[in-house]
Write a protein that binds this DNA or RNA. Structure first.
Length: 888
DNA sequence: AGGCCGACGTA
DNA sequence: CGTACGTCGGCCTT
């Protein structure tokens, strides 16, 4: 039986907006989501509970309707629609698009009129259609019949009243078709339709019933006695107007048939992406995924046909021989991390649908030889998803992986670098519109045990990688990322794999003694802090600290956080400056040393049996193109403080090598800015080769370079560094401890001097707003749709990202090229030295005996030559027995 | 056990 | 009210 569900999108979203506290529903970027959340929740619940076969959502277009034309004050008393609400309507529409639910708007009419038209059509169309109307607008009660029911939200967004004819009559004392007559008499505050003063629903209903309808009440108005009758006669005009305005239009030309509102497949991948974007997780996410789509467990498209075999002993060579020279999908089953791994099995998929799986266990010697040769054969092109891990596992198995023609994870990253995950299953859904795994019950009927399942999913994955590579190659090409992929990102994979494999040697004894040294001090500071306040609290708990600082010690409140008042170092410093309370001194010192101790502890835990730390570099995490490092993160080892640098003493040259070398770019980001902005003065400042910050300070303050004071230099240095981040006058003032207006003045003078910078920065944002993306020197894109957001926070945040992305990203391009060149040059020169780490603008290299000089020359050449900019790329190099000593 | 938040380390 | 990250402990929920 057809069951049509109609929703009043605007009224429901508006209710949700006020029912849910806005501060609990917003994303990291400041987009409010309370209305989206509440609306979606109501929608999903009603889909689940009512199982409609047809659905549509109606929206208002604007306040201007035929009603406001007719009666200028219609809805005039309403407060201005908040921007925080308006910005959520497009999101709701996007959500509906993902759910494949049609939504309708008609200029000059309200959502109610659209719903009234659809109800009328649906009931006329067939005799057995049932209609449900979910709305927060009582005018719709006039649409209730024995086949159409209004679901009216009671409180919040969870309780719905089921308004059948009996329920309407019970509540208002009149049948549904008479409800607008009653409303005309009583009036509707929210629409600014005044009714008859002193007449409530009770009296109105009695009149309507007694005289059989409003028309008769009006006709016989003079028979109504008393004050209320008098008031009615006096406001008769209002009543008639109200009745005219609250009648819903039932014959709008909508251009859709009820049949077109039948539920259809949703775009699950798009929906998932939107849920991610809106940070909708947890219970609602589950509920949505469970409820929204009919047949949500089935693949969006049928999975591919796979002609798969599991190869037995001595079958490998023969099968591989048949594969030919076309690219194949390769999936490595196994585990990897910390520079090593293990292969359990390999699956190869061909474009024609054939696939094979081979388990490592039980390989015959002949199989092993054939497989090793095939894997290492660069002339046998292979497509892998995220090849670095597999190549580590393959290497640990004693084989070598060559001929990687495409890495689908890297391709997807270049196409859309802001994704949080590039999991094969997500990409398969997103780009191939099919589920990666077929559900267990539609297995081919021949695969039963666990091993077969492993084999099958490996082959499916290999096939997905192969199919994805075709689709993504196209997308990469269109995004202008082809060269970046083939010349930079893919060649970088083996370089990173080698770095992870090598690891960096650690002086465990040194770190352990440092750890106990800081541990001692942690205890001491904690004890002293407890003594001051006369009790023991958890100094690491911001919550407990707030009680002590603001309640018990009565200190002035600091900046607010979501959960109270901040106790961060800056704020504590500020409190100490005003109160000089000794507790604060101990607390700050405690924070400092406990952090140092934790850092060391974390590092020690990751030292492998070979005495080295093998971090993992991630190539698809940072939206700007940078690498990231985990387990442990070796890109944030302390360096700013004396004590922090002692940790760097723990990273040392390994046995068989002579020293560590660090090589870093100086002021890489400012140099890139000079190049991109073509600001003549800035370029000159770099070409002069003198102290850059002093040089620029002398320009801004218009003094001789010799006359630049350290204060002037510090200000301009902060300015130089802040520029690429979209620094504000406020931010600069905070950092320099000056007033915002002084900081603003400084910025003005700076831009006055370096006009090219200003025009470059504004140009970058304008261009990005126009094209939708920013671009680095090598064409790496970052898409920033929020640049046109009507939410100020979101928009301005996107603007700062747009300023920063080309600069940070170009620097990332450069050092990646430098790594490739350096690695290749080391090999070409036959040196044994090896790259260990990359820290964004710095390389750490382990120097083999006797190679220091040659290596230094080589590294300088290759790093400086990574790009041809209008300013020189200055590289500074240092060597020593530890990372600390190698600094310069 | 898993997720969020505040705090803080790096470039 | 400054970009890009990763990690930790506390604390809350499941």
């Amino acid at each position: 039986m057809p069951r049509l569900l109609l929703l009043d999108g605007h009224s429901l979203a508006y209710r949700a907006f006020f029912a849910l506290p806005v501060e609990n529903f917003s994303t990291a970027t400041g987009q409010n989501t309370n209305a989206v959340y509440g609306f979606t929740s109501m929608l999903v619940n009603v889909l689940r509970d009512e199982q409609p076969t047809h659905v549509a959502v109606a929206f208002d277009v604007s306040r201007q309707t035929f009603r406001s034309e007719e009666y200028a004050d219609y809805k005039a008393k309403r407060n201005k629609t908040p921007d925080e609400f308006k910005s959520q309507l497009p999101l709701i529409e996007r959500m509906l698009t993902c759910f494949a639910i049609p939504f309708l708007k008609v200029d000059g009419y309200e959502a109610d009129d659209i719903i009234a038209t659809l109800v009328t059509d649906a009931l006329a169309d067939s005799d057995d259609t049932e209609v449900l109307i979910l709305t927060g607008d009582r005018d719709s009660l006039q649409l209730v019949t024995d086949r159409s029911t209004v679901l009216y939200p009671m409180r919040g967004v969870s309780d719905l009243a089921r308004m059948t004819p009996a329920a309407v009559e019970e509540k208002y004392g009149v049948p549904p078709h008479r409800y607008p007559e009653l409303a005309a008499i009583v009036g509707e505050t929210s629409d600014n339709l005044p009714g008859v003063p002193g007449v409530g629903a009770g009296f109105a209903a009695r009149w309507i019933n007694t005289y059989d309808g409003l028309d008769n009440v009006i006709a016989q108005a003079d028979q109504i006695t008393g004050k209320k009758g008098e008031a009615f006669r006096e406001h008769l005009g209002d009543v008639i107007r109200n009745r005219r305005l609250n009648a819903l239009v039932r014959d709008l030309p909508l251009g859709v048939t009820i049949g077109e509102l039948a539920r259809s497949d949703w775009d699950r991948a798009e929906a998932l992406a939107l849920l991610d974007e809106l940070e909708i997780r947890g219970e609602l996410r589950t509920r949505i995924l469970d409820v929204v789509a009919p047949g949500e467990d089935e693949p969006v498209e049928a999975g591919v046909e796979l002609d798969g075999v599991t190869l037995g002993p001595d079958e490998v060579a023969g099968w591989l021989a048949e594969t030919g020279a076309d690219p194949v999908g390769l999936h490595v089953g196994g585990t990897w991390g910390s520079g090593t791994g293990r292969v359990d099995g390999l699956a190869v998929a061909l474009a024609d649908g054939r696939a094979a799986y081979v388990a490592v266990e039980g390989l015959s010697p002949a199989d092993d030889t054939a497989l090793a040769a095939w894997l290492a054969d660069a002339a046998r092109p292979k497509v892998l998803h995220d090849a670095k891990g597999p190549s580590l596992a393959v290497a640990a198995q004693g084989w070598q992986l060559a001929g990687v023609a495409e890495d689908t994870a890297l391709a997807a990253y270049l196409v859309a670098p802001d994704q949080r995950s590039y999991a094969l299953a997500d990409l398969t859904l997103r780009y191939l519109h099919r589920e990666l795994e077929q559900s267990a019950d539609d297995d081919q009927g021949m695969l039963f045990d666990e091993g077969d399942t492993t084999a099958r999913s490996a082959m499916v994955a290999a096939r997905a990688a192969l199919d994805l590579s075709v689709e993504l190659a196209d997308q990469v090409e269109r995004a202008g990322g082809h060269r970046l992929l083939t010349d930079v990102e893919m060649p970088l994979v083996p370089v990173l794999a080698a770095m992870e494999q090598t690891g960096i040697a650690v002086d465990v004894d040194h770190l352990e003694s440092l750890e106990s040294h800081f541990g001692e001090e942690v205890r001491k500071e904690a004890d002293e802090a407890y003594a001051v306040i006369g009790k023991e609290i958890n100094l690491g708990s911001p919550k407990q600290l707030q009680v002590v600082l603001f309640d018990e010690l009565g200190m002035p409140k600091t900046k607010r956080t979501k959960t109270g008042y901040t106790t961060d170092a800056d704020a504590l410093q500020g409190l100490f400056a005003t109160t000089e309370h000794p507790f604060l001194a101990h607390l700050l010192r405690h924070r400092e040393v406990i952090r140092l101790r934790q850092t060391i502890e974390g590092l020690l835990k990751t030292v492998q049996p070979d005495g080295r730390i093998h971090t993992t570099f991630h190539q698809t995490i940072a939206a700007t193109g940078r690498l990231s490092s985990t387990e442990p993160n070796l890109q944030n080892i302390p360096v700013r403080t004396e004590e922090g640098r002692r940790i760097r003493e723990g990273f040392v040259v390994g046995p068989g090598f002579e020293s560590l070398m660090t090589a870093d770019y100086s002021q890489i980001e400012m140099r890139i800015m000079a190049h991109l902005s073509e600001d003549a003065l800035l370029i000159e400042a770099f070409r002069s080769g003198r102290d850059f910050h002093a040089e620029t300070a002398s320009r801004v303050f218009d003094v001789d370079p010799d006359a630049v004071t350290s204060e002037m230099r510090a200000k301009i240095k902060a300015m130089n560094y802040g520029l690429a981040y979209g620094l504000s006058a406020f931010g600069l003032s905070q950092q320099l401890g000056i007033t915002p207006s002084e900081a603003g003045g400084l910025m003005d003078e700076y831009f006055e001097t370096f006009g090219g910078i200003r025009s470059y920065l504004t140009g970058v944002v304008d261009e990005a707003r126009r094209t939708g993306f920013t671009e680095t020197i090598m064409g790496r894109r970052r898409y920033l749709p929020d640049l046109t957001s009507d939410n100020r926070m979101r928009r301005e945040s996107a603007e700062r990202m747009a300023l920063n992305a080309p600069i940070q990203g170009s620097a990332a391009d450069l050092i990646k090229v430098a790594m490739l060149r350096t690695g290749a040059a080391i090999e070409a020169a036959g040196l044994r030295s090896r790259i260990l780490l990359q820290v964004h603008d710095e390389l750490v290299i382990e120097v083999a005996a006797g190679e220091r000089e040659a290596l230094e020359a080589l590294v300088r050449t290759e790093m400086a030559g990574a790009a041809d900019l209008t300013v020189p790329l200055d590289v500074s190099v240092g060597t020593g027995l530890s990372w600390h000593e190698a600094a310069h």
